[in-house]
Structure formats: C-alpha cells, structure tokens
C-alpha cells in the first residue's frame, strides 16, 4: 500500500507542477504591475504571489533562472522555475524522503513483529486517521482500499504544502490558485473515472416530477463543476487569507509608521499564527474529507 502511495505522489506532483509552470507568465506580468505604483502595503502582496525570486532576506535573495519559452503548437509555454514551483518540487521530495524512510523498515520486517520508531509512528498515525475517519465511513467498507492511496497522497501533499507557508523563508504553494486547481482537478478525474451508473442516473434522471427536468438537469450538470471549483477555492482562500491577516497585522507597524503599534500587532499576529497551525491541519483534512465524500457519492450503488 505504501508503494501505491509513493506512485501516486509521483504521479500527482508533475501535474501540479505543470499548472504552476503554466501560470508563470500571468504572474510575472502582475508582479510588474505592482512594481510600478509603489505602496506601503505592497510587500504583503509580494509575499503571497508567485515570483522568480526566493527570499532569504538577511542573507540575500536567489533569483531563479529564466528559460526560453517552449513552443508547443501555436502557443509558447514558459517553463522557467518560479518560487512556487521550486517549493512544489521541494515538498514532493520531502514527502518522498519521509515516506520512503518510514516504508524501508516495513519492507525489511515483513513479519510485522517489531515496534515502529519515530517517523513511522507519524506516518502510521496519519495513515490510520485517513483510513478510519475518512476513507472507511465516506467511501464504504467494500471499496475504500482502492481510493485510500489517493486520499493519503492528497492529505500528505496538502498538509506539507500548507505548513510550508508557516516556516521561515517557506512559501505556501497552496496559496496559489493554480496548485489547488490542479489538486481539485485530480479529485475531479478520480471521481469521474470511477463513477458508477447510479451517479449519472442521479444527474440525468433525478427522482423529481418530469416537469422539473429542465431545471434540475442543468443544476445537476453545474454541480459537477462547482464541487471541484469550491474545493480549489476553499483551500486557496484559506491559505491566502490566513497569510494576508498575519502580514497585515505585521504590516500595520510599517503602514502607521510607529513602533508602539507593535505592542498590539505582534501578539495579534502571533495569535493568528497559532490559529493558522490549526487551520492548516483542518484544511488538509477537509480537502481529503470532501474528496472522500465526492468519491463516495460517485461510486455509490443504487438504493432507492
């Protein structure tokens, strides 16, 4: 099962990569706009949007290389690395290393007669939590094993990405709508690749009087797309919103240009930061939970 998890992590990361890479030109245009009209609050936006620099402020910044755009068919694709794509690769690598470390001992001790140590405990807690609290109740006893690797991958990836934004010099890639859109797209694909007959019947032949079909069917079709959209926007807005509030409280010191503001704003920022530690975990859980709910709805057998 852990091997499946690894395979899915590998399969997921290039997808998210592609989306972040593809978004790059639009973001660099945006950064250019922000540079024109200097504003005291600009540094807040600078911390949130993607860019081609990684800040290690007292020690300088790393400017990422700019590559020639790749021509595919009619349009050009800028594949040069950005702040978020670097962190995307870093997060994937981190997850791979941690999970491989945990998995290696299991491979050596197939008999199972051993006590798990440090990092294995952590992975085991997460795996059991997703299996017993998300996959089993939401998808059902019969089919949950098939979708567990995807849910675990989604959970680990969102969790690590969320927490990365709270570390010094880190950047939260889930605060980029392209990354969350790619994650929601994977859920969308999983839901629709494994959807059963009952799911489509529920959309095109709902249990309502025939006169309501012209209203119900378009609403249900719209519902197919609003679910992953809400999934993407929820994660994105939570992460961006949290960072924005922290940075605004810190930024008040510079906007009002007084040291005394710090007495109030630093404890408030600390409070929001502690809240964010909770929110990051809850959002990763919610993303996994809702993915599980949507998968469960799609593969459900008819019971009317």
């Amino acid at each position: 099962m852990i091997r499946f998890l690894l395979a899915f992590t590998l399969a997921l990361s290039p997808m998210a990569n592609l989306a972040a890479f593809a978004s790059e030109p639009a973001d660099s245009v945006h950064a250019g706009d922000a540079g024109k009209k200097e504003n005291k609050a600009d540094f807040i936006i600078h911390h949130i949007v993607d860019g081609d620099q990684i800040d290690f402020e007292p020690f300088g910044t790393i400017t990422l290389p700019k590559w020639e755009p790749v021509q595919i068919g009619g349009f050009s694709l800028d594949l040069s690395p950005t702040k978020h794509s670097v962190f995307l690769a870093f997060n994937s690598l981190l997850i791979l290393i941690v999970v491989l470390l945990a998995a290696s001992t299991y491979r050596k001790n197939r008999s199972g007669a051993f006590v798990p140590n440090g990092i294995q405990n952590l992975i085991e807690i997460m795996t059991e939590f997703i299996r017993d609290d998300v996959a089993r109740p939401m998808i059902g006893e019969k089919k949950y094993r098939k979708f567990l690797p995807y849910l675990l991958t989604a959970f680990t990836f969102t969790l690590v990405s969320n927490y990365m934004g709270l570390l010094p010099y880190g950047s939260s890639i889930t605060g980029n709508i392209n990354v969350t859109a790619a994650l929601a797209l994977t859920t969308f694909l999983v839901v629709h690749l494994f959807s059963g007959k009952a799911y489509w019947k529920h959309i095109f032949l709902p249990h309502v009087p025939i006169g309501l079909y012209p209203i119900m069917i378009p609403v249900e079709i719209l519902g197919i797309f609003t679910k992953p959209f809400a999934l993407a926007v929820r994660l994105f807005a939570n992460m961006t919103g949290g960072h924005l509030v922290i940075l605004t409280f810190i930024g008040l010191i510079f906007i009002l240009e007084s040291y005394f503001v710090a007495v109030l704003s630093v404890p408030l920022a600390l409070f929001i930061y502690l809240l964010e530690i909770l929110v990051c975990l809850i959002q990763a859980y919610v993303f996994t939970l809702l993915s599980g709910v949507f998968i469960g709805m799609a593969i459900e057998e008819e019971h009317h």
Binding site: R234, A237, N238, G241, I282, V286, L289, V293
Partner: peptide, 20 residues
Amino acid sequence: RGTAILFAALIEGVALIAEV
C-alpha cells in the same frame, strides 16, 4: 465532530468565495 467539521467547511466555502 466529524460531521460538524464537514458542514463548517461547506459553509466556510461560501464566505471564502466572497473573500476571493
């Protein structure tokens, strides 16, 4: 608790779309 978190997330989603 599990159900409450699920529905809190759904309600919160509307507010977050307003935020965006």
